[in-house]
Amino acid sequence: MASFWDWITRRQDASYVYDLDMFEETSNRAYLKRMALDICCNYVARTVSQTVFRHMKNGTKQKDDWDYWLNVKPNSSQNAALFWEDLTYKLIRNNEVLVVQSDDYQLLVADSFTRKQRALYPDTFEGVTINDYTYQRTFSYDDVWYLTYNNKKLDNYIGGLYEDWGKMLGRMIEVNLRNNQIRGKFKFNQTKGNQDTEKQQKFIDKVMKSYLTKSVAFVPETSGIEVEETNNTSKNSSQSFDELLKLLDSFVDQVANIIGIPPALIHGQVADVSDARTSFEKNCIGPLLNKIKSELNAKAVTEYDYKNYDDHFVLIGVNAPTILGNADKIDKAVSNGAITPNEVRNELYLEPIEGGDEMIITKNYQKLKGGEEENDDDNQD
């Protein structure tokens, strides 16, 4: 059995005094990366949660269960906005998301699951867990909504984040083993008659046992023996608050560009954001809504209804055209007979109106004759 002196002499290096600085740097980097990822994912999730879902059949909006589930209350614990925000966040953050329908027709976003890919049959999903409940049955690919994000750059970023967390955890364990270790030293007055090392070792063992097993321990003062506890402390150099904010902004910009969000929108810059908003809606929100729409149409609409009743889902998100935003374009397109009012309403996700399939041309066009304007009504006299 190694003696106390052997235990002490093994600690001859002093490198541990620098560990906390390295640990803090790794810790800050990992924490700020995670914060930047959450900021960007939540920004996209909140935007997608504003989407309105319409179930259309033969050109008519359906007021059915799907309309209620997708726009009002998908399950007993979430309203529609929270449901779509949760789904979108997990889709981006985890690169995939699974939605199952319970026996009482609730739509539930899975927290974890295991996908088993198969060659000739639909994939299956096992171990589907929602909050603290885990399904014991297996779900078929045809009976669930399963979406993937497929963003390789984001995968690499998250991989780097996990690597930072791993380094931080390893450093944390090492630092705690070194810096939280209780250390002490015994001083013996090696005078004549006080040189029995065996008795000294037994005394040390008793002191150590007392320290390790008792919440309150006393060491008697003994002539010729001095017990002293040493502290293992080091000064930490911390980054300034401004430096941390700049580092966070840098990580936010990096994640935003990966996902397709112009950084100006994330940072709340209000000057000249129209182009940034258009880019965000086109390059980020549009593809996400298209993924959701494709999965809805594939799983909630039968082939027969799609072919015979034009059964499909329409998603009206923040990127959808609006009447007020396109008033001038609508007026010019309709007034010169280029498109019908119902064609315009279809582009605006509005139901058709009676008589809306006829072309409309304005009557206030005039001809020039002899350098002067001539009204068409004058020619009828």
Rank of each mutant, 00 (worst) to 15 (best):
N95V: 01
W165P: 09
T191N: 13
A298G: 07
N180F: 08
L82E: 15
T134D: 14
F83T: 05
A320C: 09
D376G: 07
Y141C: 12
R178L: 10
I173F: 10
Y18V: 14
T278W: 09
A256V: 02
G184S: 05
A110K: 08
A338Y: 02
R46M: 05
F241S: 12
L91M: 02
D13N: 09
I266H: 04
A320H: 14
N379T: 10
S76Y: 04
E303C: 03
R46S: 07
M22P: 01
N336P: 00
I173G: 05
N231W: 10
T47M: 12
G371P: 01
V44N: 02
L368M: 10
Q101D: 06
M208H: 14
V219T: 06
I182Y: 08
W165Q: 13
T26P: 08
Y31R: 14
L289H: 02
T114I: 15
K90Q: 04
L177W: 11
G370T: 06
P74T: 00
Y304C: 04
R93P: 11
N364M: 01
T134S: 15
G286N: 14
L169P: 10
E163P: 10
T340G: 01
V17F: 13
C40F: 11
R183S: 11
K192A: 11
L247H: 09
Y89P: 10
N176K: 14
T191E: 13
I158R: 06
D305V: 03
G127Q: 14
K246M: 07
Y135I: 14
T124Q: 08
K202C: 05
G127R: 07
V270W: 07
D123V: 09
L32G: 00
L315Q: 01
T230C: 07
Q200R: 00
I259N: 04
T302F: 02
E347V: 06
A80K: 00
I8P: 12
P263D: 03
F251Y: 14
A81S: 13
K332R: 05
E303Q: 06
I8N: 15
A80D: 00
K282V: 08
I261K: 01
V175I: 14
G160D: 02
E343A: 03
I130Q: 07
I339Y: 06
F188V: 09
R115F: 07
L98W: 02
F53S: 00
Q239A: 11
Y135T: 13
M56I: 05
G260F: 10
K209F: 14
F218Y: 13
L108E: 01
C41V: 12
D305W: 04
I261V: 03
S76R: 04
Q254P: 00
I204Y: 01
S240N: 09
W84C: 06
T148A: 02
D164H: 12
S140R: 02
L161F: 12
Y43K: 05
L247Y: 11
S250W: 09
N79L: 05
E85Q: 14
